[in-house]
């Protein structure tokens, strides 16, 4: 008998009903956003007018599908581009941080560790404005005193990348450090004793061990970057990523089912990536 479980039938049924309701609550908005992507109507609302894929592939007005919508496509490319750069940077710096905090001893280590975690608890909007302000200060300074025009420090893709990088690095550092902590240092010592150089040990022993964590850190980073809104909103220029494009569309034009189609695309995309990262984690435990 499980002592933790409720013992009376009534209580157990109430509990199970609550669980069910909770999962309905979790699923409801996602289902609602998804279903109308396939409705053959120009409004994402009932009644159901039949199944269609026009909101994905349609090319004639009024049903221009997302894959034929130039602004949405451009947003998607921008998101992809930003996501790859940001997560690659965050994984590289995250790996350095993991080695720094797991392997090295230095003064003020605890204070610096807390500093590393802090970006996670600063609201995204504030990270966004603070980087905007700081970058503009530098850009203005360069303009007035050196007569230099540092266009990349004005709102745009470069600042979006910096903004997302600023908090993603904390996440990648934590993921990679957790893996590095499990590493048996005697493996490295054995390789060194056998005459391998430091660099060779890193390349053939330590990094292959870290590979699953590096991979999932990259995937998680990419997902968070792709879906980020708050920080990006403050730093965005003319080359807006997908979430911003979609938000503009929602606020200014009102919603058409093409937004549902984008939602489905995002859900399926992130679902696949999440499965990928779970699989990578599973290999990790299988060793």
């Amino acid at each position: 008998m499980n002592v933790a479980a409720p013992q009376s039938t009534v209580l157990r049924m109430t509990y199970n009903t609550y669980l069910l309701l909770f999962f309905v609550y979790l699923a409801a908005p996602l289902v609602a956003a998804g279903v109308f992507a396939f409705n053959d109507s120009t409004f994402s609302a009932l009644p159901w007018k039949g199944f269609t894929l026009d909101w994905f592939f349609g090319s004639t007005d009024p049903k221009v599908g997302m894959f034929n919508d130039r602004r949405l496509l451009r947003g998607m490319t921008n998101s992809l581009y930003i996501g790859i750069i940001v997560s690659a940077m965050a994984v590289i710096v995250g790996t350095c941080n993991a080695f720094l905090f797991e392997r090295k001893q230095f003064p003020f280590k605890n204070v610096l560790y807390i500093l590393m975690i802090i970006p996670l608890v600063i609201p995204g909007v504030i990270l966004g404005i603070s980087i905007l302000v700081f970058a503009s200060m530098i850009a203005n300074g360069a303009e007035t005193s050196l007569n230099l025009d540092l266009a990349f420090l004005r709102p745009g893709m470069f600042l979006v990348i910096l903004g997302q990088f600023s908090f993603l690095t904390t996440i990648t550092s934590l993921v990679i450090a957790a893996r590095l902590r499990k590493f048996d240092i005697s493996l490295e010592e054995a390789a060194l004793n056998l005459g391998a150089s430091r660099g060779r040990v890193l390349a053939t022993v330590t990094l292959p061990f870290l590979a699953p964590a590096l991979f999932s850190a990259f995937v998680v980073g990419f997902l968070i970057s792709f879906e980020n809104f708050n920080t990006t909103l403050m730093l965005v220029g003319s080359d807006a990523p997908l979430t911003i494009t979609m938000y503009d569309r929602m606020v200014k034009v009102g919603s058409t089912p093409v937004l549902n189609a984008v939602s489905v695309f995002l859900m399926v995309g992130s679902g696949l990536l999440a499965v990928l990262s779970v699989l990578a984690q599973r290999n990790r435990t299988g060793e």
Binding site: F23, L26, A27, A28, P29, L30, V31, A32, A33, G34, F36, F43, S44, A45, L46, L223, F226, E227, F229, T243, M246, Y247, M250, S255, L259, N260, S263, L266, M267, S270, G271, L273, A274
Partner: peptide, 27 residues
Amino acid sequence: LLCLIPLWVSDLVRAFGWIVLLRETGI
């Protein structure tokens, strides 16, 4: 895992889902 699913979906999509459900012409 079921609990984590919404975590993988953008804030924007979740809010949009609520709008589709709750607005005047909603479900």
